[in-house]
């Protein structure tokens, strides 16, 4: 990647991060009119309490001052204080990053390997029974709401497998026993998340393979005496994988945000569940914090996708 291009990409990413911050401010401070009313909706509060809260959140100052304060604390890594937990939002979020990465990572590995495998063969054997079945499975999987699938799995396997949390409550297991316990808790949420995600990898992979089938270089490879499996593995795959790999990176941020519903169903102690709790409280500073983290992750993973694409496609190297 040329220096110029890299620089413009970095600047673009920083601008997007700035836009995330502005949007966060606008959403949670400006749009509600009075965040305190949103915060205290459905709760009996005295005018005095409201005034105290307004002062505490700095809402009695001009918007510009509020924004400058907000931006300054963001740069310091200060995301405010949770109303519900009465703890710094940044610390709450930091605690939840690990479980979310574990869940989404497991789901990602599952869905990408399944999707790439299915999509590859579906495209290669276009029109076959396998193709029709894989495409149908992908389209149906795409149409299923994740949280409902979670509920179904709970209903079906809720007995033999744990139904919520990441570890058995009250257990003081450690080492291998702890890992086993976590793994058992991980099965259902990871399966749910993977089941609703594999569809897009399948369909993208299939479309990419189909796009390569008419290419002249496959005839060249066959003419050289390469068997069909070699044509597929050595020529079609390296080309068809490019869009899928990029998609994986593009989706990183989306997947983490998308885990909200699944984590809520399974009370998985990750960022999504935290967002859900903030929503139910309601706890605006916490909601704002999770919003910023989800969006920033998406922006960064999008920039990463661009870098990865340029690294793996020789046609784009050095551009």
């Amino acid at each position: 990647m040329s220096v110029r291009r890299a620089a413009s990409r970095v600047v673009g990413t920083l601008v997007s991060l700035g836009m995330v911050a502005v949007l966060g401010f606008f959403l949670f401070r400006v749009l509600p009119g009075d965040p305190v009313l949103t915060l205290t909706r459905g709760r009996p509060v005295t005018p005095g309490e409201v005034a105290r809260l307004r002062h505490e959140f700095g809402l009695d100052r001009p918007l510009v001052t509020q924004f400058v304060d907000y931006a300054a604390s963001l740069l310091r890594g200060d995301l405010g204080r949770s109303y519900f937990y009465d703890q710094p939002v940044a610390r709450l979020i930091a605690e939840r990053v690990g479980p979310t990465l574990l869940l989404t990572g497991a789901a990602l590995v599952l869905s990408v390997s399944l999707g790439v495998w299915l999509g590859q063969w579906a495209g290669w054997r276009r029109g076959s029974a396998f193709d029709r079945a894989a495409t149908a499975a992908a389209v149906v999987g795409w149409s299923v709401p994740a949280f409902w699938l979670g509920l179904l799995l709970l209903m079906a396997f809720g007995g033999p497998l744990p139904t919520g949390g990441m570890v058995t409550p009250g257990s003081d297991a450690s080492g291998a026993a702890l890992a086993w316990d976590v793994a058992r808790h991980l099965v259902l949420p990871a399966l749910t998340l993977a089941a609703v995600q594999f569809a897009q990898y399948t369909l993208t992979m299939r479309a990419s393979v189909l796009g390569e089938l008419g290419e002249g270089y496959l005839t060249t490879a066959r003419a050289k005496g390469l068997p069909e499996d070699g044509v597929r593995a050595r020529h079609v795959l390296p080309n068809a994988l490019l869009p899928t790999v990029t998609l994986v990176f593009l989706m990183l941020g989306q997947v983490i945000g998308g885990a909200i519903a699944v984590e809520s169903v399974f009370s998985w102690p990750g960022l999504g569940y935290l967002a859900y709790q903030a929503l139910s409280a309601p706890d605006l500073p916490l909601l704002q914090g999770t919003f910023l983290v989800f969006s920033a992750t998406a922006v960064v993973s999008n920039a990463l996708a661009d870098v990865v694409y340029r690294l793996i496609d020789p046609r784009l190297r050095g551009t």
């Binding site: 290419e215 270089y217 060249t220 490879a221 003419a223 390296p238 080309n239 496609d313 046609r315």
Partner: peptide, 14 residues
């Protein structure tokens, strides 16, 4: 052996 037409598509781009 064959020298194909349209060399742009007869070679694998990656």
């Amino acid at each position: 052996s064959v020298v194909f037409q349209g060399a742009a598509s007869s070679l694998n781009p990656v």
